[in-house]
Design a protein around this nucleic acid. Structure first.
Lengths: 202, 202
DNA sequence: AAGCAAACTTGCGCGACGCGCAGGTTTGTC
DNA sequence: GACAAACCTGCGCGTCGCGCAAGTTTGCTT
């Protein structure tokens, strides 16, 4: 019944342990006070093995964020095919923020906050988002019968959804009287789908 | 008549020389065959001084791209204030591709191609784009009388324009029968301003 | 015109990193 | 049960980023 052999399972396990340890340690002590050695020790492997999985601390940390962002593409594919695209996209975009995830939202958000504040992590954070955007574009292409190789359309839509997600999220992190994250995201997507007419209806 | 003193001019000059050397050497020998030492030598300064200007090879290379991308914000501010926003944005977005730049377009494009292909550079490339997006958002906020701190709107628009630019550019780089870059960009912006309705009119 | 303070450059040196290599160990298969 | 492939690990080298403490240049003042 195992979809994967012992080998693959152990690999995933080690990878998770490493990225998890990297995130946890960086959040609680600050990135500069965490050595690769510490992360490897936390996961019970050698430093050399760490570098077999990740080529930098930053990549290890962003790995968890990437996993989360990937859920959007999967969620989109899971929506009924006759549903209007932007309705499906809105539901899919909310997927990372629903709380049926192995990693608690609080820890994930702490990670995002960390990556936005530490300059050394920003690049990797953006890389993860760019990768997730590409995968989302593929899912959108499937659904709309377009081809990312020849049409700008799927990539534009994916980028728009990705940007809306990040902007809503960042706005939420900085909101002084707290606001609803999902509300912000819905609003952002609605503006995008309306062609971003100036000025905002506010 | 100098808007800047000797000091500042020399600094800019050194900075340009360094980023230029970094780009040129990386393009012609491949990133891995370029040492910080080589770049510094090319610019006639010490390796230590290189690190006073840039904290990595990648940042030095992306610096030129960032300069180009900044022109969009300036171009937007230069448009007549009564012009419709998306018209002004379209003109502004085309600014980096007009050929009245100190750096020839061919070299700039070679740099972009390099940054997209070398994994170690992608992060810095995206960082530059993100920074340019933020500045563009500020310019959009001014023009529309909105506030990036409270409204999602300016950031969404800036992100959409940035994404359209990158996607059009990347598409253009990979197009087998060559197509018009400005045509692609206009098309992309038009789709965005139309709310990205599915499927594309093609 | 001269001299002083601030800013910039530079050499030195250290801790950390990324990765190739070679050998030992575990996993999957026949 | 044994063989091959995949994986983990210790070692070591070249590079990197940066703090520090001179030395040098720039710009302002009087």
């Amino acid at each position: 019944m195992d979809s994967l052999g012992l080998r693959e399972r152990k690999k995933r396990q080690t990878r998770q342990a490493l990225s998890w340890a990297a995130l946890r340690l960086a959040v609680e002590r600050g990135l500069d006070n965490v050595l690769v050695e510490d992360i490897a020790a936390e996961a019970g492997v050698s430093t050399r093995t760490f570098n077999n999985y990740f080529s930098s601390k930053a990549e290890a940390i962003s790995s968890r964020h990437l996993d989360r962002m990937r859920t959007v593409s999967d969620a989109l594919r899971a929506r009924p095919p006759d549903e209007p695209l932007w309705t499906a996209l809105t539901h899919a975009a909310l997927a990372p923020f629903e709380d049926d995830h192995p990693t608690p939202d609080a820890d994930w958000q702490a990670g995002v906050k960390l990556m936005l504040s530490e300059p050394a992590l920003v690049g990797e954070f953006l890389r993860a988002n760019a990768l997730a955007d590409r995968e989302l574009a593929a899912a959108i292409a499937e659904r709309t019968g377009t081809d990312p190789k020849h049409d700008l359309y799927p990539r534009l839509v994916a980028a728009a959804v990705g940007a809306a997600t990040n902007i809503a999220n960042e706005h939420w992190l900085n909101a002084d009287p707290p606001v609803s994250l999902t509300g912000l995201l819905r609003d952002a997507l609605q503006q995008v789908a309306a062609g971003l007419p100036p000025p905002p209806s506010t």
